[in-house]
Design a protein around this nucleic acid. Structure first.
Lengths: 211, 211
DNA sequence: TAGATTGTTAATCGATTAACAATC
DNA sequence: TAGATTGTTAATCGATTAACAATC
């Protein structure tokens, strides 16, 4: 499915809609853009416009069928089949995220993103597992990514190692990276990077302290 | 200093500028909007417009004095004096963030956000410390926040506890919260929340996997 | 003085909201 | 049929970019 050129602002809201639908699914068969919007903190018009980019999912006078819309949104986001993910950098943050993601995957039947491999430079960690997921050396990245058909990666290495790791991942065919290192990664156009930068967030919040 | 109504999009870029200035400070006395923009992945015009909201910091024909602009940006972001921060929820993620922040604070003389208190429900953790920062029970939140003059907080508790914790923090006078729980917190208008939602980010990235 | 670069105003672009005919 | 709510077009809003006179 190739919906080209849809804005990231739109894509960003789809998982939020998905979360609302999941919350509501046992209580009601359908939901209006009004209600979905309210629960997602978005106007009803925007809900309808967002969904209309991908098709006509609603019914006038009724709203959207919850189960059907869930299925459609999952397809759009490629969450209708398991996705394989790797995490590079098993420091304390990497370790925590590995456990967090693992728990989420096991507990939540809707969460199809499966962490299947961990990587680190530290030779002491080789052969260890975290919640059953094995830790490999960095030199194994390319091989393992191909063998396990990994499509998604999390980077939690120190800032000065992040670009090199990113290059290796991209060369191995990774198309989407969640980066926790405080660096702006340089990647080719067809690769998507989402940044989570703790100190940037905190520094930004500091502004609002003096309100 | 009361710069009212400046857009969050602007505030969000200031810490990025600060990071560039720090990187460049030993190499050159001044920097043009051109160069600052290039290093921050922003157009020169936007750099000038962002800075102009707060004053006239540049000099025609020369650019911005690096040290001076650093000082000004720090003042704007309230990073010219130490800020006290608390973290609530010492699970594996909370633990990792505590260590991460602590290291950052100690190593980076520019990073003035100081983590001074940790909180958790688990009675087994009471009295423990992480890198020297003590862990208290949740019932101590109000007292400790007032005593240590804490202005900023990180929430890393499970989703179902997050709103209650947020309420306690806000009642105790916290004005800015970094929330890792996958919930939309309800807070009064004068409180600012930044959300880091791992599963939302991953689900969003999944979209780009099928490119 | 000539060249560079600011601060600012006007133009453009993109995203959100409002409105409404179509229709369940 | 009457009421509700969609999908979509036009209007609005806000943020970014381009352009340029002022001036170091």
């Amino acid at each position: 499915m190739a919906w080209k050129g849809i804005s990231d602002a739109v894509i960003r809201r789809l998982p939020i809609y998905l979360r609302v639908l999941e919350e509501v699914r046992d209580k009601q068969p359908s939901i209006s853009s009004q209600e979905l919007g309210a629960k997602a903190s978005v106007t009803p018009a925007l809900v309808r416009k967002d969904l209309a980019w991908f098709g006509e999912f609603g019914k006038q006078g009724v709203g959207y069928d919850v189960g059907f819309l869930q299925d459609e949104l999952r397809k759009i986001l490629h969450l209708d089949e398991p996705l394989h993910m790797a995490l590079v950098g098993v420091g304390s943050l990497g370790h925590a995220l590995a456990r967090y993601n693992r728990r989420r995957f096991l507990e939540d039947p809707i969460f199809t993103i499966k962490l299947v491999a961990l990587f680190d430079v530290n030779p002491k960690l080789m052969g260890d597992t975290i919640d059953g997921v094995p830790i490999y050396g960095l030199e194994e990245i390319a091989r393992i990514i191909r063998e396990l058909e990994i499509q998604l990666a999390i980077i939690t290495v120190p800032a000065d190692a992040a670009q090199a790791v990113s290059n290796t991942l991209v060369d191995a065919g990774i198309k989407a990276i969640l980066n926790f290192a405080p660096v702006q990664l340089e990647v080719s156009d067809n690769v998507h990077v989402a940044n989570v930068d703790l100190s940037l967030e905190l520094q930004r919040l500091a502004y609002y302290v003096g309100l």
